[in-house]
Structures are given as structure tokens and as C-alpha cells.
Nucleic acid binder design. Structure first.
Length: 419
RNA sequence: GUGAUUGUAGCUCAGUUGGUUAGAGCGCCUGAUUGUGGUUCAGGAGGCCGCGGGUUCAAAUCCCGUCUUUCACCCCA
């Protein structure tokens, strides 16, 4: 730690024990649940053509313009490390023709964004996400949110909040932008510096500005949804209605803005109070991604694993709870016992019993200490006497009691141990 | 990219106005009669004081640079 010779790059970290056990729990439960909802796993390369992200996330978004690890490779190709999962997933599905237009896939993968690190923001971070393609249907959106909510439950996460809104259709965009600009115009010089710039570049960003002054003005003007077509508003209502049927509560937040270009209709965000300024553990929405002549419609979400972990820890869910422990520890006295225990260890492990032993000549005291540290439930001790008699001492570490047993007895080895 | 902030044993941290061999707690190792853990006691190992340069008789301590940590802006998961 002292020297940064051994440190990973800025904003990146090695994930190791004990935290890794929490990661494994998160991934395992996600895979199980996704399977219940009929999703198949998809693993796309972390490196893609730059154009894959430009065309789907949007050429002018911050993610593409200033956050990507983009570079030219030796062959002069423009490439980028994936900053999110949807673009690559849709690139893959588009290549599958008809099949890709009605698919359900999930991914658990590292993402890369070259930003200044901060609470809940790493340069390499990890997302678990899903994408379901198919004709726009509010029920698909509702099911997607339900799945996400289900997943949080499976992880043991409480205290999160779902906020939902709509971006309307592609044809709603111009009227919304015009409407908002017009409504904001009279207050132009009351807005913060950033918003004065944003009003032309990206009006929607004014809507979710954190500046108090801006927020007050935004509260006074009509919400973006007012400028949308009737059917767009109806779409959102249908989603909320379907969620209500499933007993899922969401908060409609007209000020919720999702930045990526591909979103249409329903957008949502899940936040958690344990997080810092970056308080969203997940985001999702319906999208339409144009690839060539085709536009692929779909709905999906992405959750930041690091942020989920921060939230879980606040809920009292810790890595320690998922750290493997228990099992058997073999204590060997003498070289011959060591060799015999290697054989026994193999047999136990074949039965799926967690089993460990010291491989070097250590004192019995040291071996017992280690057994205790490793959290072994039973210790099997063998030395010269036991080898000669074909027995072993089996000690229960919790009770402290021990007895000599006949090793030749298979029942003793695999059943009486109680594992 | 902007503005703050951090860096001393495996971990958490002390280290006075620059001044001999840089400390503590936890952890680790070894013992406390021959082959028995958790408690206790005794002993021990372990430090490019982030890195590079400068000031000084003397730098962990002051100055500059650099990397890194943490946090906020921005953006997003």
C-alpha cells in the first residue's frame, strides 16, 4: 500500500476477500432471478468500435464526448471500452435478425468511464443489467421495473426508492424542447450559469439542475410531460397502473431526466439514501436504437454493483455473512501423517466437504490455531499412534470434545461428521 | 476537466517549535515441560514515513513537482 507501484490505476480497484464474497452473492442471486424471468446471459466484448457507442448513446452526450476510454489501435481503428451495456447488447441483438427483435438478455460486466473518481464513482465499475427487445408495450416496462425491484429484494436491500417519468416519443422531443425553452425564457437571467448554457444545448438538463434557484423556477413552469402527445402521457399511466396491480409503488418525478439519447417513453431511477452525491443505484428505461434502417425497440435497466454494495452495507448486509467457513481441518503430526492427510483431504473434498490443512511441518499448537482461525467445525488429528492403529481423533471445535474413531469406517468419514 | 483533501508496519492510527536507533493498538510468529484452538502472560518479526527534486549541519516533519486516496462540481449506475 505504501508504494503505488502495486496500486491499480486511478479509480480502479482490485476486488478481493472478504468483499468478493458479497459480489458473488449479488451475481449468483441475480443469475438465478433472471433465469426465473426468462433472461439468458450475454457476454459482449469490453472493447467495441467507437461508432457502436456514438450512434446509440448519442454523439453529443457527456458519456461519449468526455467520459469514454476511446483510442485508436495499431490498425488505425477507432475503439472504446464500453461505458455502459446497452449499446453493445443491441449491437449483438441487431446481428441476430428477427431473433434479436424479441429477446431477453442480461449481463454482468465491467464498464469504463474516465471521470474523476468520487463516492459511488469508479473508472472501472460494474453493472448488472437486462435488455428486453420487442414492440413498445407498457407491460414490458412494468415487468422490467418489477424484476428490478424483485432483485433488490433478493439481495436484501431495503430503503430504496423508485422514481419514474417519461421522455415521450421521438416526435415529442422538439415540442418539449420548444415548450420548455419558451417557458424558461422569461426567467433566463435568474438561472445559474450552467443552465443558461444548457437552455440551448440540452434544455432537459435545466429541469434536473440541483441549484436551488433553478429548481424554484422549474417548479413554476409546466412539466415536460405537458408538451407531449396525449398517447405518450397515456403510456406512462399504463405503466404505473400495471405496477400498481403488482403492488409496486413508484414515485412520479417529472424532474427526472435520463441523459442518454436512446431513451423514449418510460424512464426510471432507483435511489438510495446511503449513497453520496451519486445517489442512483440503478437507472432504466425504454429505448429505441436505430441501427441502419432498423430501429430496435427495447426496455432495460442497469444497476451499479459498487453502489448496490454501499447500500447493502447500510442495510447491515455484509461480506462476512457470505464468507465461506466451517468444514474440517486436518492436523498432521509427522511427515507420514501429512501424506496420509493429503489423501484424506482429497476424499473429503470429493464429497464436497470444505477441508483444509497445513502443508508444512508446523507444531500442533500452530495447526490448531489455524483451524480455529479458519472457523473449522471439526478437526481431524492424526499422528504416529493413529496411523499405526488406523484411527483418527475427531475434535468438535465448538464443544471442545473429542473422540477416537476408526478411520476405515466410511460412514464415519462422510456421514457421522455431520456435513 | 474544475475545486478541495489524503498518503507513516498486514490493518487502524500517534509522531510535539525540523534534532540521536520512527511508536501504539489490533493482527502475525514463537514460547509458558514431551501431541490440542479460542482467554491470559512473556518474547519476537515486520517500516524506500507514496515517489522525485530542493532548503538545511540535520527532514516523516519546511518548499516545489508528481502519483495516489477521499469528497464535491459536472455527468451517470
Amino acid at each position: 500500500m505504501a508504494s503505488n507501484e502495486f496500486q491499480p490505476l486511478q479509480g480502479m480497484s482490485d476486488i478481493h476477500a472478504p468483499e468478493i464474497n458479497l459480489w458473488r452473492m449479488i451475481e449468483e442471486r441475480a443469475r438465478t432471478l433472471f433465469s426465473c424471468y426468462g433472461y439468458e446471459e450475454l457476454r459482449t466484448p469490453v472493447l467495441e468500435k467507437l461508432s457502436v457507442f456514438k450512434r446509440s448513446i448519442g454523439d453529443t452526450t457527456d458519456v461519449v464526448q468526455k467520459e469514454m476510454y476511446a483510442f485508436t489501435d495499431r490498425g488505425g481503428r477507432e475503439l472504446a471500452l464500453c461505458p455502459e451495456g446497452t449499446a453493445g447488447t443491441i449491437r449483438h441483438l441487431a446481428g441476430r435478425g428477427e431473433e434479436g427483435l424479441n429477446a431477453r438478455v442480461f449481463y454482468i460486466a465491467p464498464m469504463f468511464r474516465c471521470e474523476r473518481p468520487q463516492a459511488g464513482r469508479k473508472r472501472q465499475f460494474h453493472q448488472v443489467g437486462v435488455e428486453a427487445t420487442g414492440e413498445p408495450n407498457p407491460l414490458a416496462d412494468a415487468e422490467c421495473i418489477a424484476l428490478q425491484q424483485h432483485l433488490l429484494e433478493a439481495w436484501g436491500l431495503t430503503g430504496s426508492k423508485i422514481q419514474i417519468s417519461t421522455r415521450g416519443t421521438l416526435s415529442d422531443r422538439q415540442p418539449v424542447a420548444d415548450g420548455l425553452r419558451k417557458a424558461l425564457q422569461p426567467h433566463l437571467n435568474e438561472l445559474c450559469e450552467d443552465c443558461q448554457r444548457r437552455i440551448d444545448e440540452n434544455v432537459l438538463r435545466v429541469i434536473d439542475c440541483k441549484n436551488e434557484g433553478c429548481a424554484k423556477i422549474v417548479d413554476r413552469i409546466p412539466p415536460a410531460i405537458e408538451f407531449m402527445a396525449e398517447e405518450s402521457r397515456h403510456y406512462l399511466d399504463s405503466v404505473i397502473h400495471a405496477l400498481g396491480k403488482m403492488g409496486i409503488e413508484v414515485e412520479v418525478n417529472p424532474r427526472l431526466v435520463r441523459g442518454l439519447d436512446y431513451y423514449v417513453h418510460t424512464v426510471w431511477e432507483i435511489t438510495h439514501g446511503a449513497l453520496g452525491a451519486q445517489n442512483a443505484i440503478a437507472g432504466g428505461g425504454r429505448y429505441e436504437i436505430a441501427l441502419g434502417k432498423k430501429a430496435i425497440p427495447g426496455v432495460g435497466f442497469a444497476m451499479g454493483i459498487e453502489r448496490v454494495i454501499t447500500s447493502l452495507e447500510a442495510c447491515g448486509v455484509t461480506a462476512e455473512q457470505f464468507t465461506p467457513k466451517g468444514g474440517v481441518w486436518l492436523v498432521s503430526l509427522g511427515e507420514e501423517a501429512l501424506a496420509e492427510n493429503m489423501k484424506l483431504a482429497r476424499e473429503l473434498r470429493e464429497k464436497g466437504i470444505r477441508c483444509g490443512m497445513e502443508l508444512g511441518p508446523k507444531s500442533m499448537k500452530a495447526q490448531m490455531r489455524k483451524a480455529n482461525r479458519e472457523g473449522a467445525e471439526k478437526v481431524i488429528i492424526r499422528g504416529g499412534d493413529e496411523l499405526a492403529k488406523g484411527t483418527a481423533i475427531v475434535k468438535d471445535m465448538e464443544e471442545g470434545s473429542q473422540e477416537t474413531q476408526n478411520l476405515a469406517d466410511l460412514e464415519f468419514r462422510y456421514l457421522k461428521l455431520g456435513f
